Amino acid sequence: MTTTRDHNYDLHRQRQRLEVLVQPVQGATTLAQTLKQLGDKTVRFFTGQTEPRIWQRNRQGQLTWFAHDPMTNRTRQFSSEQDVRLWLEKRYYE
């Protein structure tokens, strides 16, 4: 039996996933990158992925790490791989 609370939570999660799909892609410099990002978001939407996504960018010679947590729909920025690892461990044990 599905409760109203469960139903509301499911609707909230679906809304979050849809909002991620329609947000403009930032930082894309080529059509291929834009299409790849759109494809990745589409797959995550349909699979309901809960694992964090981690990537890095080189900004003006400075390596910056990013981690997106689909459970909270938050993206965090880190200055080192060690900081990302600490965040992952903390997230795992919460």
Rank of each mutant, 00 (worst) to 15 (best):
T2A: 10
T3Y: 10
T3M: 04
R5I: 00
R5P: 01
R5G: 02
H7F: 13
H7D: 05
H7M: 06
H7R: 11
N8Q: 15
N8E: 12
D10E: 12
L11G: 01
L11K: 04
H12G: 00
Q14K: 04
R15E: 02
R15K: 07
Q16Y: 08
L18S: 00
E19L: 13
E19R: 11
V20K: 03
L21I: 04
V22D: 02
V22T: 11
V22G: 00
V22W: 11
V22C: 02
V25E: 03
V25N: 02
V25Y: 09
Q26G: 04
Q26M: 12
G27C: 13
G27H: 11
G27L: 15
G27K: 09
G27E: 13
T29R: 06
T29V: 15
L31G: 01
L31R: 09
L31W: 08
L31P: 01
A32L: 03
A32S: 08
A32G: 05
Q33S: 13
L35R: 14
Q37F: 05
L38Y: 10
L38K: 10
L38V: 08
L38P: 03
G39W: 00
K41L: 09
T42I: 11
V43T: 09
R44E: 11
F45Y: 15
F45V: 08
F46R: 05
T47E: 11
G48R: 05
G48L: 10
T50L: 14
E51V: 00
E51D: 13
E51N: 09
I54F: 07
W55T: 08
Q56C: 12
Q56T: 14
R57I: 15
N58G: 05
Q60V: 15
Q60F: 15
Q60P: 01
L63C: 07
T64S: 07
T64N: 05
W65K: 00
F66A: 07
F66C: 06
A67L: 14
P70D: 11
P70I: 10
T72V: 02
N73Q: 14
T75K: 04
R76C: 06
R76D: 15
R76Q: 15
R76K: 13
Q77K: 06
F78Y: 11
S79A: 12
S79I: 05
S79L: 12
S79G: 07
Q82A: 11
D83K: 02
D83P: 01
D83M: 02
D83W: 00
D83C: 01
V84A: 04
R85S: 10
L86H: 14
W87S: 04
L88E: 11
E89F: 02
Y92G: 00
Y92K: 14
Y93P: 01
E94R: 10
E94M: 02
